[in-house]
Design a binder for these strands. Structure first.
Lengths: 228, 228
DNA sequence: CCTCCTGCGTTGAAAATTCAACGGAAATTC
DNA sequence: GAATTTCCGTTGAATTTTCAACGCAGGAGG
Protein backbone atom coordinates (compact mmCIF):
# COMPACT_ATOMS: atom_id res chain seq x y z
CA UNK A 1 0.00 0.00 0.00
CA UNK A 2 1.23 3.44 -0.87
CA UNK A 3 1.17 5.62 2.21
CA UNK A 4 -0.30 8.99 1.50
CA UNK A 5 1.10 11.86 3.54
CA UNK A 6 -2.45 13.10 4.00
CA UNK A 7 -3.29 9.91 5.84
CA UNK A 8 -0.41 10.24 8.25
CA UNK A 9 -1.04 13.87 9.05
CA UNK A 10 -4.38 12.71 10.43
CA UNK A 11 -2.60 10.35 12.80
CA UNK A 12 -2.51 11.89 16.28
CA UNK A 13 1.03 10.63 16.83
CA UNK A 14 2.21 13.18 14.26
CA UNK A 15 0.26 16.17 15.49
CA UNK A 16 2.37 19.26 15.03
CA UNK A 17 4.73 17.59 12.55
CA UNK A 18 4.77 19.22 9.14
CA UNK A 19 3.84 16.91 6.25
CA UNK A 20 7.14 17.29 4.44
CA UNK A 21 9.01 15.96 7.48
CA UNK A 22 6.92 12.82 7.70
CA UNK A 23 8.66 10.53 5.21
CA UNK A 24 12.05 11.10 6.77
CA UNK A 25 10.61 10.63 10.20
CA UNK A 26 9.04 7.31 9.28
CA UNK A 27 12.37 6.11 7.95
CA UNK A 28 14.10 7.32 11.11
CA UNK A 29 11.59 5.39 13.22
CA UNK A 30 11.98 2.27 11.12
CA UNK A 31 8.29 1.91 10.31
CA UNK A 32 7.37 -1.40 8.64
CA UNK A 33 4.34 -1.57 6.36
CA UNK A 34 2.04 -4.56 6.98
CA UNK A 35 -1.24 -6.02 5.80
CA UNK A 36 -3.66 -8.39 7.54
CA UNK A 37 -6.55 -10.43 6.16
CA UNK A 38 -9.96 -10.20 7.72
CA UNK A 39 -10.13 -12.28 10.88
CA UNK A 40 -6.40 -12.83 11.19
CA UNK A 41 -4.43 -12.32 14.38
CA UNK A 42 -2.06 -9.35 14.18
CA UNK A 43 -0.62 -9.70 17.68
CA UNK A 44 -1.13 -12.61 20.04
CA UNK A 45 -2.04 -12.37 23.72
CA UNK A 46 0.93 -13.22 25.90
CA UNK A 47 3.56 -12.36 23.33
CA UNK A 48 6.07 -9.58 24.03
CA UNK A 49 4.73 -6.08 23.46
CA UNK A 50 7.37 -4.10 21.62
CA UNK A 51 5.71 -2.39 18.70
CA UNK A 52 3.36 0.50 18.24
CA UNK A 53 0.76 -0.07 15.53
CA UNK A 54 -0.69 2.61 13.29
CA UNK A 55 -3.85 1.54 11.50
CA UNK A 56 -4.02 2.95 7.96
CA UNK A 57 -7.12 1.19 6.64
CA UNK A 58 -9.59 -1.42 7.82
CA UNK A 59 -10.44 -2.07 11.46
CA UNK A 60 -8.73 -3.91 14.31
CA UNK A 61 -10.08 -4.98 17.66
CA UNK A 62 -8.50 -5.76 21.03
CA UNK A 63 -10.02 -9.01 22.16
CA UNK A 64 -9.57 -11.06 25.30
CA UNK A 65 -10.90 -14.57 25.75
CA UNK A 66 -10.89 -15.89 29.32
CA UNK A 67 -10.43 -19.47 30.45
CA UNK A 68 -14.21 -19.95 30.54
CA UNK A 69 -14.47 -19.00 26.89
CA UNK A 70 -16.03 -15.57 27.42
CA UNK A 71 -14.92 -13.33 24.59
CA UNK A 72 -14.56 -9.66 25.43
CA UNK A 73 -13.89 -6.89 22.96
CA UNK A 74 -12.00 -4.21 24.84
CA UNK A 75 -11.74 -1.65 22.10
CA UNK A 76 -12.26 -1.17 18.39
CA UNK A 77 -9.62 0.81 16.49
CA UNK A 78 -10.35 2.76 13.31
CA UNK A 79 -7.93 4.60 11.00
CA UNK A 80 -5.75 6.56 11.58
CA UNK A 81 -5.33 5.56 15.20
CA UNK A 82 -2.64 3.75 17.16
CA UNK A 83 -2.96 0.33 18.69
CA UNK A 84 -0.94 -1.70 21.21
CA UNK A 85 1.03 1.42 22.11
CA UNK A 86 0.00 1.31 25.77
CA UNK A 87 1.28 -2.22 26.22
CA UNK A 88 4.60 -1.45 24.59
CA UNK A 89 5.08 1.59 26.82
CA UNK A 90 4.28 -0.27 30.02
CA UNK A 91 6.61 -2.19 32.26
CA UNK A 92 4.65 -5.42 31.92
CA UNK A 93 5.89 -6.11 28.42
CA UNK A 94 3.31 -8.76 27.56
CA UNK A 95 0.15 -8.26 25.57
CA UNK A 96 -3.00 -8.79 27.68
CA UNK A 97 -5.18 -9.15 24.56
CA UNK A 98 -5.27 -10.49 21.06
CA UNK A 99 -5.14 -7.84 18.36
CA UNK A 100 -7.34 -9.02 15.50
CA UNK A 101 -8.17 -7.52 12.12
CA UNK A 102 -11.95 -7.42 11.94
CA UNK A 103 -11.60 -6.20 8.34
CA UNK A 104 -8.78 -6.49 5.86
CA UNK A 105 -6.36 -3.92 7.20
CA UNK A 106 -3.17 -2.06 6.36
CA UNK A 107 -0.99 -0.84 9.16
CA UNK A 108 2.48 0.23 10.19
CA UNK A 109 4.57 -1.22 12.99
CA UNK A 110 7.18 0.85 14.79
CA UNK A 111 9.48 -0.40 17.50
CA UNK A 112 8.43 1.48 20.61
CA UNK A 113 12.03 1.99 21.74
CA UNK A 114 12.70 3.99 18.61
CA UNK A 115 9.99 6.37 19.73
CA UNK A 116 10.80 6.51 23.41
CA UNK A 117 14.54 7.00 23.09
CA UNK A 118 16.22 9.85 21.25
CA UNK A 119 17.08 8.90 17.69
CA UNK A 120 20.62 8.93 16.37
CA UNK A 121 19.87 11.85 14.09
CA UNK A 122 18.66 13.80 17.13
CA UNK A 123 15.65 14.82 15.11
CA UNK A 124 14.08 17.91 16.53
CA UNK A 125 10.55 16.59 16.52
CA UNK A 126 11.21 13.67 18.78
CA UNK A 127 10.07 15.34 21.95
CA UNK A 128 6.86 16.34 20.23
CA UNK A 129 6.23 12.73 19.27
CA UNK A 130 6.76 11.58 22.82
CA UNK A 131 4.37 14.25 24.04
CA UNK A 132 1.78 13.09 21.51
CA UNK A 133 2.27 9.50 22.59
CA UNK A 134 1.66 10.39 26.21
CA UNK A 135 -1.56 12.11 25.27
CA UNK A 136 -2.67 9.15 23.15
CA UNK A 137 -2.04 6.65 25.93
CA UNK A 138 -3.94 8.91 28.32
CA UNK A 139 -6.83 9.12 25.87
CA UNK A 140 -6.95 5.32 25.66
CA UNK A 141 -7.22 5.39 29.41
CA UNK A 142 -10.27 7.59 29.12
CA UNK A 143 -11.77 5.23 26.56
CA UNK A 144 -11.36 2.32 28.96
CA UNK A 145 -13.02 4.33 31.71
CA UNK A 146 -15.87 5.05 29.37
CA UNK A 147 -16.23 1.40 28.47
CA UNK A 148 -16.29 0.53 32.16
CA UNK A 149 -19.06 3.05 32.64
CA UNK A 150 -21.02 1.23 29.95
CA UNK A 151 -20.47 -2.25 31.30
CA UNK A 152 -21.29 -1.01 34.80
CA UNK A 153 -24.94 -0.97 33.84
CA UNK A 154 -26.77 -3.77 35.62
CA UNK A 155 -29.02 -4.76 32.71
CA UNK A 156 -28.65 -5.36 28.99
CA UNK A 157 -30.94 -2.44 28.21
CA UNK A 158 -28.98 -0.07 30.41
CA UNK A 159 -25.66 -1.04 28.85
CA UNK A 160 -27.00 -0.79 25.33
CA UNK A 161 -28.64 2.59 25.82
CA UNK A 162 -25.58 4.03 27.54
CA UNK A 163 -23.44 2.86 24.64
CA UNK A 164 -25.78 4.19 21.98
CA UNK A 165 -26.19 7.56 23.65
CA UNK A 166 -22.42 7.96 23.78
CA UNK A 167 -22.11 7.05 20.12
CA UNK A 168 -24.79 9.55 19.14
CA UNK A 169 -23.07 12.21 21.19
CA UNK A 170 -19.70 11.51 19.59
CA UNK A 171 -21.21 11.54 16.12
CA UNK A 172 -23.17 14.65 17.10
CA UNK A 173 -26.05 13.07 15.26
CA UNK A 174 -28.96 10.82 16.16
CA UNK A 175 -27.93 8.61 13.23
CA UNK A 176 -24.66 6.75 13.39
CA UNK A 177 -22.94 3.48 12.55
CA UNK A 178 -21.08 1.19 14.92
CA UNK A 179 -17.98 -0.91 14.24
CA UNK A 180 -19.54 -4.15 15.48
CA UNK A 181 -21.86 -6.87 14.31
CA UNK A 182 -24.34 -8.22 16.85
CA UNK A 183 -21.97 -10.72 18.38
CA UNK A 184 -19.28 -8.05 18.50
CA UNK A 185 -21.55 -5.58 20.20
CA UNK A 186 -22.59 -8.21 22.72
CA UNK A 187 -18.91 -8.97 23.42
CA UNK A 188 -18.18 -5.29 23.85
CA UNK A 189 -21.11 -4.73 26.22
CA UNK A 190 -20.45 -8.03 28.01
CA UNK A 191 -23.94 -9.37 27.50
CA UNK A 192 -25.58 -12.33 25.82
CA UNK A 193 -26.12 -11.97 22.08
CA UNK A 194 -29.65 -13.35 21.99
CA UNK A 195 -30.63 -11.19 24.94
CA UNK A 196 -29.18 -8.19 23.15
CA UNK A 197 -31.18 -8.91 20.00
CA UNK A 198 -34.33 -9.29 22.05
CA UNK A 199 -33.73 -6.01 23.86
CA UNK A 200 -33.06 -4.22 20.59
CA UNK A 201 -36.32 -5.48 19.15
CA UNK A 202 -38.16 -4.32 22.23
CA UNK A 203 -36.64 -0.85 21.97
CA UNK A 204 -37.62 -0.70 18.31
CA UNK A 205 -41.22 -1.65 19.14
CA UNK A 206 -41.27 1.01 21.84
CA UNK A 207 -40.23 3.62 19.29
CA UNK A 208 -37.03 4.52 21.12
CA UNK A 209 -34.66 3.21 18.52
CA UNK A 210 -34.46 2.24 14.88
CA UNK A 211 -31.72 0.25 13.20
CA UNK A 212 -30.73 -1.72 10.16
CA UNK A 213 -27.62 -3.84 10.40
CA UNK A 214 -25.00 -1.61 12.01
CA UNK A 215 -26.75 1.69 11.27
CA UNK A 216 -28.66 3.14 14.18
CA UNK A 217 -31.00 6.02 14.83
CA UNK A 218 -32.14 7.20 18.22
CA UNK A 219 -35.64 8.66 18.16
CA UNK A 220 -36.98 11.50 20.28
CA UNK A 221 -33.50 12.82 20.94
CA UNK A 222 -32.91 16.55 21.39
CA UNK A 223 -30.24 16.53 18.73
CA UNK A 224 -29.86 17.12 15.05
CA UNK A 225 -30.89 14.18 12.95
CA UNK A 226 -29.58 14.48 9.43
CA UNK A 227 -28.81 12.05 6.66
CA UNK A 228 -25.28 12.90 5.68
CA UNK B 1 2.99 16.07 57.10
CA UNK B 2 6.73 16.02 56.71
CA UNK B 3 7.65 14.46 53.42
CA UNK B 4 10.39 11.93 53.81
CA UNK B 5 12.73 11.57 50.87
CA UNK B 6 12.53 7.83 51.33
CA UNK B 7 8.83 7.96 50.60
CA UNK B 8 9.28 9.87 47.37
CA UNK B 9 12.07 7.68 46.06
CA UNK B 10 9.51 4.88 46.11
CA UNK B 11 7.23 6.91 43.86
CA UNK B 12 7.51 5.61 40.29
CA UNK B 13 7.36 9.14 38.92
CA UNK B 14 10.83 9.72 40.36
CA UNK B 15 12.46 6.51 39.21
CA UNK B 16 16.04 7.26 38.29
CA UNK B 17 16.12 10.56 40.19
CA UNK B 18 18.68 10.67 42.95
CA UNK B 19 17.27 11.39 46.43
CA UNK B 20 19.27 14.57 46.93
CA UNK B 21 17.72 16.11 43.84
CA UNK B 22 14.16 15.47 44.97
CA UNK B 23 13.48 18.49 47.19
CA UNK B 24 14.60 20.94 44.54
CA UNK B 25 12.62 19.11 41.95
CA UNK B 26 9.44 19.25 44.02
CA UNK B 27 9.88 22.98 44.42
CA UNK B 28 10.50 23.35 40.70
CA UNK B 29 7.30 21.45 39.98
CA UNK B 30 5.32 23.51 42.46
CA UNK B 31 4.05 20.54 44.47
CA UNK B 32 1.37 21.41 47.01
CA UNK B 33 0.95 19.27 50.14
CA UNK B 34 -2.64 18.31 50.95
CA UNK B 35 -4.64 16.24 53.42
CA UNK B 36 -8.10 14.66 53.08
CA UNK B 37 -10.41 13.22 55.74
CA UNK B 38 -11.82 9.75 55.36
CA UNK B 39 -14.73 9.78 52.94
CA UNK B 40 -14.09 13.23 51.56
CA UNK B 41 -14.02 14.08 47.88
CA UNK B 42 -10.54 15.04 46.65
CA UNK B 43 -11.50 15.70 43.05
CA UNK B 44 -15.01 15.91 41.65
CA UNK B 45 -16.26 14.24 38.50
CA UNK B 46 -16.78 16.75 35.71
CA UNK B 47 -14.32 19.28 37.05
CA UNK B 48 -11.26 20.25 34.99
CA UNK B 49 -8.40 17.77 35.19
CA UNK B 50 -5.19 19.70 35.61
CA UNK B 51 -3.27 18.17 38.48
CA UNK B 52 -1.34 15.01 39.05
CA UNK B 53 -1.83 13.52 42.50
CA UNK B 54 0.81 11.62 44.47
CA UNK B 55 -0.59 9.62 47.36
CA UNK B 56 1.74 9.66 50.39
CA UNK B 57 -0.43 7.91 52.96
CA UNK B 58 -3.93 6.50 53.24
CA UNK B 59 -5.95 5.23 50.29
CA UNK B 60 -7.94 6.87 47.51
CA UNK B 61 -10.41 5.39 45.07
CA UNK B 62 -11.65 6.38 41.63
CA UNK B 63 -15.42 6.10 41.77
CA UNK B 64 -18.06 6.67 39.16
CA UNK B 65 -21.77 6.82 39.92
CA UNK B 66 -24.06 6.61 36.91
CA UNK B 67 -27.47 8.26 36.48
CA UNK B 68 -29.18 5.07 37.69
CA UNK B 69 -27.25 5.22 40.95
CA UNK B 70 -24.89 2.34 40.25
CA UNK B 71 -21.62 3.00 42.02
CA UNK B 72 -18.52 1.64 40.35
CA UNK B 73 -15.04 1.63 41.81
CA UNK B 74 -12.65 1.83 38.89
CA UNK B 75 -9.42 1.59 40.83
CA UNK B 76 -7.97 1.74 44.30
CA UNK B 77 -4.74 3.71 44.78
CA UNK B 78 -2.22 2.96 47.51
CA UNK B 79 0.97 4.86 48.48
CA UNK B 80 3.22 5.90 46.84
CA UNK B 81 1.31 5.88 43.56
CA UNK B 82 -0.04 8.57 41.27
CA UNK B 83 -3.70 9.34 40.69
CA UNK B 84 -5.64 11.43 38.16
CA UNK B 85 -2.51 11.72 36.03
CA UNK B 86 -4.13 10.07 33.02
CA UNK B 87 -6.98 12.54 32.94
CA UNK B 88 -4.70 15.53 33.23
CA UNK B 89 -2.55 14.25 30.36
CA UNK B 90 -5.48 13.61 28.06
CA UNK B 91 -7.15 15.97 25.64
CA UNK B 92 -10.53 15.60 27.28
CA UNK B 93 -9.63 17.73 30.26
CA UNK B 94 -12.54 16.70 32.46
CA UNK B 95 -12.51 14.12 35.20
CA UNK B 96 -14.67 11.07 34.37
CA UNK B 97 -14.71 9.96 38.01
CA UNK B 98 -14.81 11.18 41.58
CA UNK B 99 -11.54 10.78 43.45
CA UNK B 100 -12.40 9.92 47.04
CA UNK B 101 -10.26 9.31 50.12
CA UNK B 102 -11.35 5.95 51.49
CA UNK B 103 -9.00 6.54 54.42
CA UNK B 104 -7.54 9.70 55.88
CA UNK B 105 -4.89 10.53 53.32
CA UNK B 106 -1.93 12.80 52.65
CA UNK B 107 -1.04 13.64 49.10
CA UNK B 108 0.72 16.06 46.81
CA UNK B 109 -0.78 17.90 43.87
CA UNK B 110 1.34 18.99 40.93
CA UNK B 111 0.09 20.97 37.96
CA UNK B 112 0.44 18.61 35.02
CA UNK B 113 1.69 21.34 32.70
CA UNK B 114 4.68 21.81 34.96
CA UNK B 115 5.56 18.21 34.29
CA UNK B 116 4.80 18.07 30.60
CA UNK B 117 6.56 21.28 29.58
CA UNK B 118 10.23 22.03 30.16
CA UNK B 119 10.76 23.97 33.37
CA UNK B 120 12.40 27.39 33.41
CA UNK B 121 15.45 25.99 35.13
CA UNK B 122 15.81 23.49 32.31
CA UNK B 123 16.38 20.84 34.92
CA UNK B 124 18.14 17.92 33.42
CA UNK B 125 15.85 15.29 34.87
CA UNK B 126 12.76 16.56 33.20
CA UNK B 127 12.85 14.17 30.28
CA UNK B 128 13.25 11.29 32.69
CA UNK B 129 10.14 12.39 34.56
CA UNK B 130 8.15 12.56 31.35
CA UNK B 131 9.38 9.11 30.42
CA UNK B 132 8.31 7.81 33.83
CA UNK B 133 4.92 9.47 33.46
CA UNK B 134 4.35 7.78 30.12
CA UNK B 135 5.14 4.42 31.67
CA UNK B 136 2.82 5.07 34.60
CA UNK B 137 -0.09 6.05 32.38
CA UNK B 138 0.54 2.94 30.29
CA UNK B 139 0.56 0.81 33.43
CA UNK B 140 -2.79 2.28 34.48
CA UNK B 141 -4.01 1.21 31.10
CA UNK B 142 -2.95 -2.33 31.89
CA UNK B 143 -4.73 -2.17 35.22
CA UNK B 144 -7.95 -1.15 33.50
CA UNK B 145 -7.59 -4.02 31.07
CA UNK B 146 -7.15 -6.34 34.00
CA UNK B 147 -10.23 -5.00 35.72
CA UNK B 148 -12.19 -5.48 32.52
CA UNK B 149 -11.03 -9.06 32.43
CA UNK B 150 -12.43 -9.49 35.91
CA UNK B 151 -15.79 -7.88 35.25
CA UNK B 152 -16.06 -9.85 32.00
CA UNK B 153 -16.95 -12.91 34.03
CA UNK B 154 -20.61 -13.75 33.59
CA UNK B 155 -21.31 -14.72 37.19
CA UNK B 156 -20.53 -13.37 40.63
CA UNK B 157 -18.48 -16.42 41.46
CA UNK B 158 -16.40 -16.13 38.31
CA UNK B 159 -15.66 -12.45 38.90
CA UNK B 160 -14.76 -13.00 42.52
CA UNK B 161 -12.45 -15.94 41.86
CA UNK B 162 -10.71 -14.18 38.99
CA UNK B 163 -10.11 -11.19 41.24
CA UNK B 164 -8.86 -13.24 44.18
CA UNK B 165 -6.54 -15.34 42.04
CA UNK B 166 -4.98 -12.19 40.62
CA UNK B 167 -4.52 -10.77 44.11
CA UNK B 168 -2.87 -13.96 45.34
CA UNK B 169 -0.61 -13.96 42.33
CA UNK B 170 0.42 -10.33 42.87
CA UNK B 171 1.04 -10.96 46.57
CA UNK B 172 2.83 -14.17 45.63
CA UNK B 173 1.05 -15.68 48.59
CA UNK B 174 -2.19 -17.53 49.14
CA UNK B 175 -2.87 -15.10 52.00
CA UNK B 176 -3.49 -11.46 51.21
CA UNK B 177 -5.55 -8.42 52.12
CA UNK B 178 -7.71 -6.33 49.82
CA UNK B 179 -8.34 -2.58 49.92
CA UNK B 180 -12.13 -2.92 49.97
CA UNK B 181 -14.94 -3.60 52.39
CA UNK B 182 -17.77 -5.82 51.10
CA UNK B 183 -19.69 -3.01 49.46
CA UNK B 184 -16.47 -1.72 47.91
CA UNK B 185 -15.55 -5.12 46.54
CA UNK B 186 -19.03 -5.49 45.09
CA UNK B 187 -18.72 -2.07 43.44
CA UNK B 188 -15.34 -3.02 42.03
CA UNK B 189 -16.57 -6.34 40.67
CA UNK B 190 -19.85 -4.80 39.50
CA UNK B 191 -22.04 -7.25 41.36
CA UNK B 192 -24.68 -7.14 44.06
CA UNK B 193 -23.35 -6.95 47.61
CA UNK B 194 -25.71 -9.51 49.11
CA UNK B 195 -25.06 -11.88 46.25
CA UNK B 196 -21.35 -11.44 46.80
CA UNK B 197 -21.65 -12.27 50.50
CA UNK B 198 -23.69 -15.34 49.68
CA UNK B 199 -21.17 -16.53 47.13
CA UNK B 200 -18.30 -15.97 49.56
CA UNK B 201 -20.06 -18.04 52.19
CA UNK B 202 -20.62 -20.81 49.69
CA UNK B 203 -16.94 -20.82 48.70
CA UNK B 204 -15.99 -20.97 52.36
CA UNK B 205 -18.30 -23.94 52.93
CA UNK B 206 -16.81 -25.65 49.91
CA UNK B 207 -13.34 -25.26 51.37
CA UNK B 208 -12.04 -23.18 48.48
CA UNK B 209 -11.60 -19.99 50.41
CA UNK B 210 -11.22 -18.63 53.89
CA UNK B 211 -11.54 -15.03 55.01
CA UNK B 212 -11.99 -12.71 57.93
CA UNK B 213 -12.92 -9.10 57.19
CA UNK B 214 -10.57 -8.05 54.39
CA UNK B 215 -8.01 -10.80 54.91
CA UNK B 216 -8.28 -13.71 52.52
CA UNK B 217 -6.72 -17.08 52.03
CA UNK B 218 -7.11 -19.31 49.01
CA UNK B 219 -6.94 -22.99 49.87
CA UNK B 220 -5.58 -25.80 47.75
CA UNK B 221 -3.45 -23.40 45.77
CA UNK B 222 -0.08 -24.50 44.37
CA UNK B 223 1.65 -21.56 46.01
CA UNK B 224 3.49 -20.69 49.16
CA UNK B 225 1.21 -19.90 52.04
CA UNK B 226 3.03 -18.10 54.81
CA UNK B 227 2.03 -15.88 57.66
CA UNK B 228 4.51 -13.06 57.35
C1' DC C 1 -22.45 1.95 80.41
C1' DC C 2 -25.82 2.68 77.17
C1' DT C 3 -27.23 4.10 72.59
C1' DC C 4 -26.60 4.72 67.85
C1' DC C 5 -24.71 3.57 63.60
C1' DT C 6 -22.25 0.93 60.27
C1' DG C 7 -20.89 -3.29 58.12
C1' DC C 8 -21.82 -8.14 57.37
C1' DG C 9 -24.37 -12.34 56.40
C1' DT C 10 -28.84 -14.51 55.30
C1' DT C 11 -33.19 -15.22 53.14
C1' DG C 12 -37.10 -15.37 49.85
C1' DA C 13 -39.53 -13.55 46.00
C1' DA C 14 -39.36 -11.11 41.65
C1' DA C 15 -37.01 -10.11 37.58
C1' DA C 16 -33.36 -10.66 34.27
C1' DT C 17 -29.85 -13.09 32.07
C1' DT C 18 -28.10 -17.11 30.16
C1' DC C 19 -28.26 -21.14 27.30
C1' DA C 20 -29.64 -24.13 23.52
C1' DA C 21 -32.07 -24.46 19.58
C1' DC C 22 -34.40 -23.14 15.30
C1' DG C 23 -35.75 -20.74 10.81
C1' DG C 24 -34.95 -17.39 7.63
C1' DA C 25 -32.21 -14.04 5.09
C1' DA C 26 -28.14 -12.55 3.13
C1' DA C 27 -23.55 -13.06 1.77
C1' DT C 28 -19.82 -16.05 0.19
C1' DT C 29 -17.93 -19.81 -2.32
C1' DC C 30 -17.37 -22.96 -5.81
C1' DG D 1 -26.46 -20.13 -10.13
C1' DA D 2 -26.65 -23.45 -6.63
C1' DA D 3 -24.80 -24.78 -2.28
C1' DT D 4 -22.91 -23.42 1.97
C1' DT D 5 -21.83 -20.55 5.61
C1' DT D 6 -22.65 -16.67 8.49
C1' DC D 7 -25.49 -13.52 10.74
C1' DC D 8 -29.76 -12.20 12.84
C1' DG D 9 -34.06 -12.47 15.43
C1' DT D 10 -37.12 -15.33 18.30
C1' DT D 11 -38.52 -18.42 21.86
C1' DG D 12 -38.87 -21.09 26.21
C1' DA D 13 -36.80 -23.19 30.16
C1' DA D 14 -33.28 -23.14 33.63
C1' DT D 15 -30.24 -20.57 36.23
C1' DT D 16 -28.71 -16.19 38.41
C1' DT D 17 -28.91 -11.95 39.82
C1' DT D 18 -31.25 -8.38 41.85
C1' DC D 19 -33.89 -6.18 45.40
C1' DA D 20 -35.82 -5.38 49.96
C1' DA D 21 -35.71 -6.62 54.47
C1' DC D 22 -34.01 -8.37 58.84
C1' DG D 23 -30.91 -9.64 62.81
C1' DC D 24 -26.63 -9.46 64.71
C1' DA D 25 -21.98 -8.05 66.08
C1' DG D 26 -18.73 -4.54 66.85
C1' DG D 27 -17.21 0.09 67.11
C1' DA D 28 -18.05 5.03 67.89
C1' DG D 29 -19.66 8.43 70.64
C1' DG D 30 -22.03 10.55 74.39
Amino acid sequence: MTISADLLTRCPLFDGISPEDLPGMLACLGARSMRADKGSVILREGSPAKDVGILLSGCVQLIRTDFAGNRTIMMSITPVKLFAESFSCSKAGLLPVDVIASEESDYLLIDCRRIMTACTHACSFHSRIIFNLLQIVADKNLALHQRALITAGRSTREKLMTYLLIQAKEANNARFSIPFDRQGLADYLEVDRSGLCAEMSKLKKEGVLDYYKSDFRLLNLPMQDTIE
